[in-house]
């Protein structure tokens, strides 16, 4: 009995021991999630492990979530790495950098289609960031410094 209990405890705590998980996310999944949010401000950053400017600004998104803990803010980091790279690159990257925000891998195949579904003005280039609160949306295809990100977030939340 005792052994079973230990096994159960081990099993339940395993995901925590392996740290951050990366889930697959379609654009429809993302939209459903955003619709549930109502008064939450979502900051969704599109990035990839091969994109140097993206990696440079990831800590700013981590910092934003940490500093605004008391506000209704949710940062989502959505990787556009290839699906075949989930185990090989994305998960190791996330644990190596100890990312605390929720990380997803975009589960879409036809870029011509999903880019427009996320935002019609998006060329598809990353980094790109989407701010969403209820029906308000702002899409920015650009790199951020921390002060720039902070002021963009504050302005959006006004």
């Amino acid at each position: 009995m005792k052994h079973i209990l230990i096994l159960v405890v081990l099993f339940v705590s395993l995901p925590a021991a392996f740290g951050q998980q990366v889930q697959l996310l379609t654009v429809d999944n993302l939209n459903e999630r955003l619709e549930q949010g109502k008064d939450t401000t979502y900051v969704i950053n599109f990035w990839a492990t091969w994109c140097a400017p993206c990696i440079k600004e990831l800590p700013y998104f981590e910092k934003l979530q940490e500093e605004k803990q008391k506000e209704k803010l949710k940062v989502l980091l959505v990787s556009v790495d290839f699906k075949s790279q989930l185990e090989k690159r994305v998960i190791p990257f996330v644990s190596r950098h100890s990312l605390k925000n929720e990380v997803f891998l975009l589960d879409e195949q036809d870029q011509q289609e999903y880019i427009d579904k996320i935002n019609k003005e998006w060329s598809g280039a990353i980094p790109a960031t989407l701010f969403v609160k209820g029906k308000n949306k702002k899409f920015l295809e650009q790199e951020f410094t921390y002060p720039k990100l902070l002021s963009e977030y504050n302005n959006f939340n006004k």
Binding site: F82, K83, S84, Q109, D110, Q111, Q112, E113
Partner: peptide, 11 residues
């Protein structure tokens, strides 16, 4: 533009 609509070549 693009060569096709399936970079990962699975479709």
């Amino acid at each position: 533009g693009a060569i096709d609509n399936d970079t990962e070549d699975i479709n």
